[in-house]
Nucleic acid binder design. Structure first.
Lengths: 148, 148
DNA sequence: TCGGGATAGTCAATGTGATTGACCATATGG
DNA sequence: CCATATGGTCAATCACATTGACTATCCCGA
């Protein structure tokens, strides 16, 4: 694979990501969530997955803890997240999704699945699985930056 | 492919894009370009490809023409782009890369190729081509949004 | 056990980039 | 030619993230 093709592949990945992000945004809007940006979704995913603090979240999003704190404040204000005391550390506050927050997460997952379903239509059946497998091998676990 | 796997695939695409963006950023910094963000790169790609005006660029980046104008102003200031009169329309100004701008584009392509080269190491040789082919089929041409 | 340094979190001020709104110059179509 | 649409910029504002400062709590060693 020469440089030209390699650059091309990199651009295809970026374009695919743009489609995913835009598609999720549209799907969320269609489901009645029009006040949430991708950064919120990434935060939801992290908060849902494990006991999460503001500092954890900041690292995961690749931002400062102040920015993460502001983000969380907005989510709390809108009723998607609650802050609970950490029984192990009186400084820390554990973040937890409310029922509304979990409903929102499910909506985002459905929207993401819709985007991929669109790909399924233009790709041979087995290929989507192959795509998945390849990306899984290629990609290293790490943060999902909400902004370029 | 069920919803779970579909969501998972979508996330893999986003993570891959994050790697591409971060990788290019690091590669550019290593090559001495530390004042350029991804949005600039997307602008370069567009300006290099065809006769481009500020409004064209705005559509391509998915922003307003004012934002595109500001972006271009910064690039002009730093010597990467020049504005030339459009012989066909006295209102318009065609954007063109300077030699510095083209050198910068080459550096970005090399950095992108480096990222993909890393993938090449963990993937069977033929697979990278297959990945390319799949994404090409899946992806529709469209804007490359610099921000989520 | 107590004192110093590290860590969790917030508040306030600042800065950067994008958007909205207004405006001028030029094109274009009736 | 006049009305309207389009390319572009300037200015004001807004949204978001960052830097800096500060409090409260934890942890570790003397």
């Amino acid at each position: 694979m020469d440089d030209r093709a390699a650059t091309d592949l990199a651009m295809l990945v970026l374009r695919a990501a743009t489609e995913v992000v835009d598609g999720i945004g549209e799907g969320m809007a269609a489901r009645g969530y029009d006040d949430l940006r991708p950064a919120h979704g990434f935060a939801f995913a992290r908060i849902a997955a494990a006991d999460t603090t503001v500092v954890d979240l900041a690292e995961h999003l690749g931002t400062t803890k102040q920015a993460a704190s502001q983000l969380v404040a907005g989510l709390v204000e809108r009723g998607y997240v609650v802050r609970e005391p950490d029984p192990r550390d009186a400084r820390a506050r554990l973040l937890r999704l409310t029922e509304a927050g979990e409903a929102c997460t499910r909506a985002a997952e459905a929207a993401a699945a819709d985007v991929v379903a669109g790909w399924n239509e233009v790709l041979p059946r087995a290929s989507l699985g192959a795509l998945h497998a390849m990306l899984r091998r290629v990609v290293t676990p790490g943060p999902l930056r909400p902004a370029w």
